[in-house]
Amino acid sequence: MAIDEPPRLRDYGLQSERLLWPTKGPSVFEQEVAAMERAVGLTTLEKAVAWAQSRSMWPDTFGLACCAIEMMSIVTSRYDIARFGMEAFRSSPRQADLLIVSGRVVHKMAAPLRQVYDQMLEPKWVIAMGACASSGGMFNNYTTLQGVDKIVAVDIHVPGCPPRPEALIEGIVRLHEKVMAGVPPAYEIRGVAS
């Protein structure tokens, strides 16, 4: 590896790089991560902590609508997220690390959502699952929040209506890689969208 070539995620031993195409250049995601890493600079202890955080990130039971059903199905035996250490869905936000906002958020629900998010202890991550949580989805109207990133800082957006369980797991895996690479959670990097 040349000195000026930015380190790739697979140099850390992470497997999700597209191994079928080894000569593919770094994706935008990776370039961002690489730039941030050069800025942040991880020590061994931080790497160990990041490893622990990503291997047992417990989600909060925040299923709102249709995406919640697909979120429930990742716990089941076919898509098993217990292999990622995440099958323990905590009902209390105080015990959860990850908030998977699955479903459409309406203005009436925005306040409880923000309350639950505030009650979570740091570090905390947010996955906006589905089109409705990411951007309001097909509901561009008086009552639906056009994207949950208007009230909380989102790490990963997973598209789909609803996303397949595999798509959600892909989002979760990428979140793990972000954590392993040392990317700070979203509330430290950016605030809420405008």
């Binding site: 203005h107 309001g136 561009n140 109207n141 008086y142 009552t143 056009q146």
Partner: peptide
């Protein structure tokens, strides 16, 4: 169905659909 302090009655025809421009 709506917030207790919501103004207006949404399904009337003179209430706009709302939302944001994409």
């Amino acid at each position: 169905l709506l917030d207790d302090d919501w103004d207006g009655h949404p399904l009337r025809k003179d209430y706009p659909i709302g939302g944001e421009p994409v």
